[in-house]
C-alpha cells in the first residue's frame, strides 16, 4: 500500500493542485444574480401574460401551463442558487447527493400523500354496483360460442342460460343426463338403511306455527 498522507488518509484532497478551496469569481456571482432577477421578472410577467391572454382572446388558458411555467422557472432559479451561490458545482459531490436524497424524500411524501387524497372519492367500477351474491359480472366479458354476457347477473346464472343456447337442445340434454348420472339427487325419503335430512329447512322455524298434521298423513314435503 502506498504511503498515505496522515492529514488526508482518504485522499479527498489528493487531486487538489492548489491549496484551499475554489473561489467563485465576482463576475460569475453577478451574472447569476442577474439571471435570477431576470427569471423572477419573467415568471411574474408570464403569469400576468396568461391572464391577459385569457381575457383578451377570450380563451381559457389551461391551468397546467400556468403551473408548469411557474414551476419550471422556479426550478431553474433554484438550481442556479444551489449550483453557484451554495457552490454545489465546486464542492464535494457528497453534498449534492445529500440534497438529492432530500428532494427525493420530499417527492415521495408529496406523491404518495397526493395519491391518497386525490383518489379518495374514487370508487372502483367493479365495486360501484349493488352487491349481489356471486358477483354482478361487471367488467367480465365472456363469450362462449357467441353468447355474450347479458345484464348484470351472477356468472353462474349466466352459465345456466348460455350453455344450453350454445350446445343446442340435443347436446345439452346429453350433458344433462351425464350430469344426473354422476350427481344423482339424493332420495328425499328415508329408507331402512339411509336417513335423509330434510334440507333447505331452518330447524324449528315453523314449529310454533305448523298446523297439526292430520292423523295418518305424512308431513308436507318442501322442494328437493
Amino acid at each position: 500500500m502506498s504511503a498515505f498522507d496522515p492529514t488526508d488518509p482518504h485522499g479527498f484532497h489528493a487531486h487538489e493542485a492548489h491549496h484551499g478551496h475554489h473561489v467563485v469569481s465576482g463576475r460569475t456571482l453577478v451574472a447569476v444574480l442577474g439571471a435570477l432577477v431576470f427569471f423572477t421578472v419573467l415568471t411574474v410577467m408570464c403569469s400576468r401574460a396568461e391572464i391577459w391572454v385569457g381575457n383578451a382572446l377570450h380563451i381559457a388558458v389551461p391551468h397546467w401551463i400556468n403551473v408548469a411555467g411557474a414551476m419550471s422557472i422556479a426550478v431553474i432559479k433554484g438550481t442556479l442558487v444551489l449550483l453557484f451561490f451554495m457552490q454545489l458545482r465546486y464542492d464535494n459531490p457528497l453534498n449534492a447527493i445529500i440534497f438529492f436524497f432530500c428532494l427525493f424524500t420530499l417527492a415521495l411524501f408529496l406523491g404518495l400523500t397526493s395519491l391518497d387524497v386525490g383518489s379518495r372519492g374514487m370508487v372502483f367500477p367493479w365495486k360501484a354496483n349493488e352487491v349481489i351474491a356471486g358477483g354482478n359480472s361487471v367488467g367480465l366479458t365472456r363469450q362462449i360460442g357467441g353468447v355474450p354476457m347479458t345484464g348484470q347477473v351472477p356468472i353462474y346464472e349466466w352459465a345456466k342460460e348460455a350453455r344450453p343456447a350454445q350446445l343446442g337442445p340435443k347436446a345439452f340434454a346429453a350433458e344433462l343426463a351425464k350430469h344426473e348420472a354422476e350427481h344423482p339427487h339424493a332420495p328425499i325419503v328415508s329408507d331402512a338403511s339411509h336417513s335423509r335430512p330434510r334440507t333447505g329447512v331452518t330447524p324449528g322455524l315453523f314449529d310454533a306455527q305448523a298446523p297439526e298434521p292430520h292423523a295418518g298423513e305424512a308431513p308436507a314435503e318442501e322442494g328437493h
Binding site: L108, L112, L115, D116, V117, S119, R120, M122
Partner: peptide, 17 residues
C-alpha cells in the same frame, strides 16, 4: 422504510393508496 407509512392508515385512507 419511507415507502410504507400508509399501512398504518388502512382503515382511514383511500382504497388505491
Amino acid at each position: 422504510s419511507f415507502l410504507v407509512w400508509g399501512h398504518h392508515m388502512f382503515a382511514s385512507e383511500g382504497e388505491l393508496a
